[in-house]
């Protein structure tokens, strides 16, 4: 089963990298970008056919390693 886990910064957590990227877009002439927050994507394939079980595993992976729960949120998406 293929899945995608997306990690984003919690709101209220400063994102200096996102800010620098936003400034660079501005420098390149892309006007009107009012907000930009950067994050991470993990594309994962696991040997599991049961969707619920897969989601349970992927959630555990996110909380144990992939996301830092102090500053990040995660979302799990089953792709097939």
């Amino acid at each position: 089963m293929k899945a995608r886990i997306t990690i984003t910064l919690k709101s209220g957590v400063l994102d200096p990298q996102g800010k620098a990227i936003q400034h660079t877009l501005d420098d390149l002439g892309f006007e009107g970008v009012t907000k930009l927050r950067q994050g991470k994507i993990f594309d994962i394939e696991i040997n599991e056919t049961d969707k619920t079980k897969a989601e349970t595993q992927l959630t555990a992976m996110s909380e144990k390693l992939l996301a830092n729960m102090v500053m990040e949120n995660y979302s799990v998406e089953i792709l097939d």
């Binding site: 957590v13 400063l14 200096p16 990298q17 830092n68 102090v70 500053m71």
Partner: peptide, 16 residues
């Protein structure tokens, strides 16, 4: 911090 032995977290320096 990552092991959960201390509170909070350490992020990229504000000045990058």
């Amino acid at each position: 911090i990552e092991a959960g032995l201390l509170p909070g977290t350490l992020m990229r320096n504000a000045g990058l």
